[in-house]
Amino acid sequence: MKKLYVVLMSILLVGCNTSEKEVVTVVALKGPTAMGMVNFMDRVAKDEQFDNKYEFSIVTSPDEATAMLVKGEADIAALPANLGATLYNNGGEIKATAINTLGVLYILENGNTINDIQDLKGKTIISAGKGATPEMSLRYILAENGIDPDKDITIEWKSEQAEVLAYLVANEGTIAMMPEPFVTTALQEDANITRSLDLTREWDKLQTDNSEKSALVTGILVARDDFIEDNSQALNEFLVNYEESVNFVNADTAASAQLVSDYNIVPFETAIDAIPNCNITFIEGNALENNLSGYLEVLFNQNPNSIGGVLPDEAFYYR
């Protein structure tokens, strides 16, 4: 429906729109949440003609992206899913417009003994990000599979992903939970390391009998309410072209890896192996609300503060 709207608007505006194009400012985080944008960014850089002008920024800190959104320096932002919900619940006048990245978490092993989620019983898992969404996602998956995360396994916390990576490579038999693209880096550094479990797939297995299925979500696109109200055509054109960019990135890994490298997100050698495992996606409408709300409910049940204290109401979801 949005695609048809954009096409019709483009036809109506041809030859009769003498006003300046709307400038749409977009910010994304360096990593998988920005990878899906690279084809769109490249088309803009090559002066492909759109109804609007687009200015992209890639930042390293979620706080920096949030600050740009709050100050009105960005109209659209790619944020961690729980951060978008937290911002909304704290008075941020924004809406979630699409899911752009599903889960990027994997269980790795320096060895080859973990083939099933049940194989984690009695084991020690090293990870970074204690108290953050990766821990909550892991605890949910374990508990739903009948594994008590406080009794049946041990989680050993490291300060950052680089420390997890170094420990995993140096110690045979180590089991680790890591996100892409660190997973790809680990696999490239040591041939003995295996990608044992895809936690996105494990999450999906748990949804089989659920009438309202959720998903393991990493990143979402949000837009400011005032931008949506004043420039709905610009937002809809952005979403159409963003979806095309996602499709390109998933269809042509080599070309996309080069663009990811060109925009200094991760090196080409990492990107070409990581992109197929980053679960870059585009989900909007009812599926956006169903998948995202279910994920946020899991986080809320473990720690309400992780999403700003309450579950976002329906006004959070763009339709």
Rank of each mutant, 00 (worst) to 15 (best):
N286R: 11
Q258I: 00
T281F: 00
T270E: 07
S256A: 15
P267T: 04
N290E: 11
S293T: 10
L259I: 07
I283C: 04
A274T: 00
L296C: 10
T270H: 01
A287D: 14
N279Q: 10
I280M: 12
T270Y: 01
F300R: 12
N277M: 11
E289K: 15
I280C: 04
Y263L: 04
L296M: 11
D262G: 13
T270W: 01
V266Y: 04
P267K: 03
S261P: 05
Y263M: 05
A271H: 03
T270Q: 09
F300P: 09
G285Y: 08
Y263C: 05
F300G: 04
N291S: 12
F300D: 03
G285M: 04
I265Q: 09
F268D: 07
I275Y: 08
L299W: 09
L296I: 11
E297C: 02
D273R: 03
L292I: 09
I280E: 03
Y295L: 10
D273A: 04
E284D: 11
A287P: 00
G294C: 10
V298H: 05
E284M: 06
I280Q: 10
E297G: 06
L299I: 10
V266D: 03
F300C: 09
N301L: 15
V298I: 15
F268C: 00
P267G: 05
Y295V: 09
E289Y: 05
N264C: 02
A257V: 07
T281C: 00
V260L: 07
A287S: 11
A257P: 08
G285I: 02
N264F: 13
F282A: 01
Y263I: 02
A271N: 03
P276A: 04
D262I: 12
Y263S: 04
N277A: 08
N264L: 12
G294M: 08
L296K: 10
A287T: 12
N290K: 14
Y263N: 03
